[in-house]
Structure formats: structure tokens, C-alpha cells
């Protein structure tokens, strides 16, 4: 390791209040361990998470969703971790992490400050202040409230079914049927805003309106 624990601590201070984060982390501790002797449990241990590629820590059986994100190039830097703990399924559909997310940016900053003190590798970590971070895929309630028109969704779906199968089978290309409408919408908006990596999906999502995303969510959500 090139850097000293002191540097990690210094950075943690810049991210947020690590002491408060340690208390918040109790939410996470039912699945994740961190610190000396930490082991994988329901979730992987989180030592050294900053700067690591998703699904890159050996021995833990990551979900297909996280493995896919890793292959697509997702690296756990501050921005991605922040987006992930805000809404895990928005960043990585198919993740098994069963956590609704922290709405309050301060909660996220403090938890990440705490986690940061267990990561010794400062490379690839943006130095931005927490307040300067973009608030990713925070959809206004009006957007989430749009009730999609499944008939319109069926028309639009023909663009998707050139790759994604209507019967939900998945091989190399994920299934998109029967998702909760909100997860579907958040995922598509995350592609549209280029937070989720994947060039085809970013391109396809970029020209869908909020209504069209809702229509697709309604259509695919109801397919069996």
C-alpha cells in the first residue's frame, strides 16, 4: 500500500462525519462487517471497498447483477457508492442488497466517511466535497407517480425485444419482465443520465421521455 492509514482518515474527514457514520452503519451491520478481522457474511465485508471494481473481491458469491456491473466497468468510487446506498437497485438492478437506501445526503456522507477509513487506497477517489456531489437518479415524485400506458409500452417495447426476450428468458442479456414499475423507471433514468454504465442502454434510454419510460415499465411489468 502506498499510503498510510492517516491519509485515509484525512479523506474520511472530508467526506463527512465518520463518528456519526459508525452509528448509522449499525443498519448495515446485520449483513456487512468492516474493520480488523471482518469477514463476508450475508453481504461481503467492506474493507478496501473504495476504488475497487464491483464484484472484484474473491470468494464472495456476488449476484449476477453486481457481477454484470463489474464487467461493465463499475468501480466503487465515492460517487458510485453514494448513488448505490441512496438506491441500490437504481444503480445495479438484480443486486441482492435488500436495502431501501438513505434519502438524506448527510446520512450517506457520514456512512461513507466511516467506510472510507477502512479503505487504504486513495486512487481514483474524487476529492469533491460532499455538497458538490451530483444527486444521481433522484426522481421527482411526479415522475415516479406517472402511470404508464401499457398499450403505448407495447409499441415501444418492440425496440427492446430486438435483444430482451418477451418471455423473460435471460442469457447474456438480462430479463426485464415483471419488475416493480419504480425499479424499472429508476433503472432507465439512471441509464438516461449515464450513471449506469452500458453504451447500448444509455443510448436507448436517452431518447425516452418520462412517459415512455413509465409506459415501458407498465408493459414489461405485467408480462408473465
Amino acid at each position: 500500500m502506498l499510503c498510510t492509514p492517516a491519509l485515509a482518515e484525512q479523506e474520511a474527514v472530508e467526506i463527512g462525519d465518520a463518528e456519526r457514520g459508525a452509528i448509522l452503519f449499525e443498519d448495515c451491520a446485520s449483513c456487512h462487517e468492516v474493520g480488523a478481522g471482518a469477514e463476508d457474511r450475508i453481504g461481503p465485508h467492506l474493507n478496501g471497498i473504495f476504488g475497487r471494481k464491483a464484484a472484484a473481491h474473491d470468494g464472495y458469491p456476488y449476484s449476477d447483477g453486481i457481477q454484470r456491473a463489474g464487467r461493465d466497468g463499475l468501480v466503487w468510487d465515492l460517487r458510485r457508492l453514494d448513488a448505490y446506498i441512496e438506491n441500490p437497485k437504481a444503480l445495479v438492478s438484480g443486486t441482492r442488497m435488500n436495502f431501501a437506501g438513505y434519502d438524506d445526503p448527510k446520512d450517506r456522507a457520514d456512512v461513507l466517511a466511516y467506510l472510507r477509513s477502512f479503505s487504504d487506497n486513495p486512487q481514483n477517489i474524487p476529492e469533491a466535497q460532499p455538497t458538490a456531489r451530483p444527486r444521481e437518479v433522484e426522481l421527482p415524485p411526479e415522475t415516479l407517480a406517472i402511470v404508464g400506458d401499457p398499450e403505448y409500452g407495447e409499441y415501444l417495447s418492440s425496440e427492446c425485444t430486438g435483444c430482451h426476450q418477451r418471455d423473460g428468458s435471460a442469457q447474456g442479456i438480462p430479463s426485464i419482465t415483471q419488475w416493480p414499475a419504480e425499479d424499472f423507471a429508476i433503472a432507465m433514468h439512471a441509464y438516461k443520465r449515464k450513471i449506469r454504465p452500458h453504451p447500448v442502454m444509455q443510448m436507448m434510454a436517452s431518447r425516452l421521455s418520462d412517459e415512455e419510460i413509465a409506459a415501458l415499465a407498465a408493459y414489461f411489468g405485467a408480462l408473465d
Binding site: R68, G70, R71, D72, G73, S158, T161, G162, C163, H164, Q165, R166, D167, S169, A170, Q171, G172, I173, P199, V200, Q202, M203
Partner: peptide
């Protein structure tokens, strides 16, 4: 539009190939 980049790592190239298998299954079903 977009295009794959030169110098991409092996994992990404493998997932791109696996994706093509999924595409073939999907489009022929369509």
C-alpha cells in the same frame, strides 16, 4: 451512436460476446 473502444479489458470483451449470444436468441425469437 457508440462504438467499442480499442484497449478495452478482457472482461468487457467477454461480456460483449455473451451479450451477442443473448441478442441472437432475442432477435430470432422476435
Amino acid at each position: 451512436g457508440f462504438i467499442s473502444q480499442t484497449g478495452e479489458d478482457a472482461d468487457l470483451r467477454r461480456i460483449t460476446y455473451e451479450e451477442s449470444l443473448g441478442w441472437y436468441a432475442g432477435i430470432t425469437a422476435d
